[in-house]
Simulated scan of single mutants.
Amino acid sequence: MDDRYGTDVLASGWRGHGRTESSRVPAERGLVIEVQADGFCGAVTHADAATVELEDRFGARRRFPLGPGFLVEGSHVVLVAHRPVAPQQPKRTASGSFAGPDERARVARASRILVEGRHDAELVEKVWGDDLRAEGVVVEYLEGIDRLAAMLEEEPPSERRRYGILVDHLVPGSKEARIAAEITRGRHGTNLLIVGHPEIDVWQCVRPASLGLRAWPTVPRGVDIKVGTCRALGWPSETPADLARAWRRILSAVGSYRDLEPSLLGRVEELIDYVTAAP
């Protein structure tokens, strides 16, 4: 025999023994509800924080306080205010573009972007990585523009395999400008685009303010730009490991396109457009 009082005289919950707790149901527009007290049945036409308005099949409307005392499909419910979910704002990538819903990486294209060095590639990946994966664009580094001509001979570009090439220090009279002009005039120039920024090294394409600096230091001619920069800033610069740590410090200050100079931003966007355009 079921003893609803139990054997423990101090046990809690005896008043609710055998009762089922009613579900809390939001008063959404169109939901059909029956009022337990008098049997009035209608669909929700309006609800606020305290009341709900129902309209029956004859067009009669009545308002009731929210709370218990309602039936939905024969089950007792507690009617609560409906709180619409705010629409999600579209997400932006680090480059500032809108990210597609559940965007997955695309199969790599034959066309690709080439940059001079590892640091260039890492910076492009950090800011444009999501965009590049969505477009299926691979970024490769050359270890210097001097190697570009040989690379083009080994893997020549074509109408379906175009190369977008980002060059440091692309200013009139520079070595980089001369090499770029020769290659553009050559037999591979039709299916590639060479653009660049004016800085000697990609380090200087990061806004100094993002690192708490007023400006990047001026490095004397004949001094390696990375070594000279570290020395001027008081950072260790004696070994390759020192320079690698300096770069990690710079790269960690980059959170989005806002931390980069416009002279780099526009050029990378131009290259992405070039290699993703329909042949």
Rank of each mutant, 00 (worst) to 15 (best):
M1H: 15
D2W: 15
R4H: 13
G6D: 07
T7H: 11
V9T: 14
V9N: 12
G13A: 06
R15G: 08
G16R: 11
H17W: 15
H17S: 15
G18E: 10
E21S: 12
S22Y: 08
R24H: 11
V25G: 01
A27I: 11
E28H: 06
R29E: 12
G30F: 00
V32W: 04
Q36K: 09
A37S: 11
A37V: 09
C41Q: 14
C41H: 12
C41D: 10
V44H: 06
H46I: 00
A49V: 10
A49T: 09
A50T: 13
T51E: 12
E53R: 13
R57V: 14
A60D: 15
A60R: 12
P65M: 03
L66W: 01
G67N: 02
P68C: 03
P68Q: 06
L71W: 04
V72I: 12
H76K: 12
L79G: 00
L79Y: 01
A81V: 04
H82W: 15
R83A: 13
R83S: 14
V85F: 02
V85P: 00
P87M: 04
P90A: 10
P90V: 07
P90E: 08
K91P: 06
A94N: 12
G100D: 15
D102F: 08
R109E: 15
S111P: 07
S111N: 07
E116M: 06
G117R: 09
G117F: 14
D120P: 04
A121I: 05
K126L: 05
V127L: 02
D131G: 07
D131V: 11
E135Y: 01
G136T: 08
V138I: 08
Y141A: 10
E143I: 08
G144R: 02
R147Q: 09
L148W: 00
A150T: 04
A150Y: 00
E154A: 15
P156D: 04
E159W: 10
R160S: 13
R160Y: 09
R161A: 14
R161E: 14
R162L: 07
R162Y: 09
Y163D: 02
L170V: 04
V171D: 00
P172V: 07
P172R: 07
K175H: 15
A177N: 06
A177H: 12
R178P: 00
I179M: 08
A180F: 04
A180D: 01
A181R: 11
E182Q: 10
G186D: 06
G186T: 05
H188A: 10
N191K: 03
N191S: 12
L193Y: 10
I194G: 02
G196A: 05
W203T: 08
R207M: 04
L211M: 03
L213T: 03
L213H: 03
P217Y: 07
V219D: 05
V219Q: 03
D224R: 01
I225F: 06
I225Y: 05
I225D: 05
G228V: 08
C230N: 04
R231D: 10
L233A: 03
D242L: 10
D242F: 12
L243A: 09
R248T: 11
R248H: 15
L251Q: 14
S252R: 11
V254C: 13
S256D: 13
R258P: 02
D259G: 14
P262A: 09
L264I: 07
G266V: 02
V268A: 05
E269Y: 02
E270I: 01
L271P: 01
Y274T: 00
V275R: 00
V275T: 02
